[in-house]
Amino acid sequence: MYNVAEISEEACVANKGCRLCIMYCPEANCILMNDEKKVAYVVESRCKGCELCVVVCNAAKHSAVAMVSR
């Protein structure tokens, strides 16, 4: 079992300019923007499961990121 981040498309507010998870993810090219839907998404093969994105998203009260088992 391995924990990775998952972003809820409904809760993500990237269309309002939020880039918190992208900014604070320690991995490069791991959380990217879906330019068509204007939401962030996680490249699971690059996620190390540190949960920093969950912390920053929850601190901003968006609560769009959760950890899931793979």
């Binding site: 880039r19 993810c25 320690p26 490069a28 090219n29 959380i31 962030a40 190390k48 540190c50």
Partner: peptide, 26 residues
């Protein structure tokens, strides 16, 4: 501001999960 919508100049590295040094690097 380009981060997230363009390819970064740093790829999959071997630092620990959540390492602030890799945030600084990015």
């Amino acid at each position: 501001k380009d981060v997230g919508s363009s390819t970064e100049l740093i790829a999959e590295h071997s630092l620990c999960a959540g390492c602030p040094e890799s945030i600084a690097f990015r």
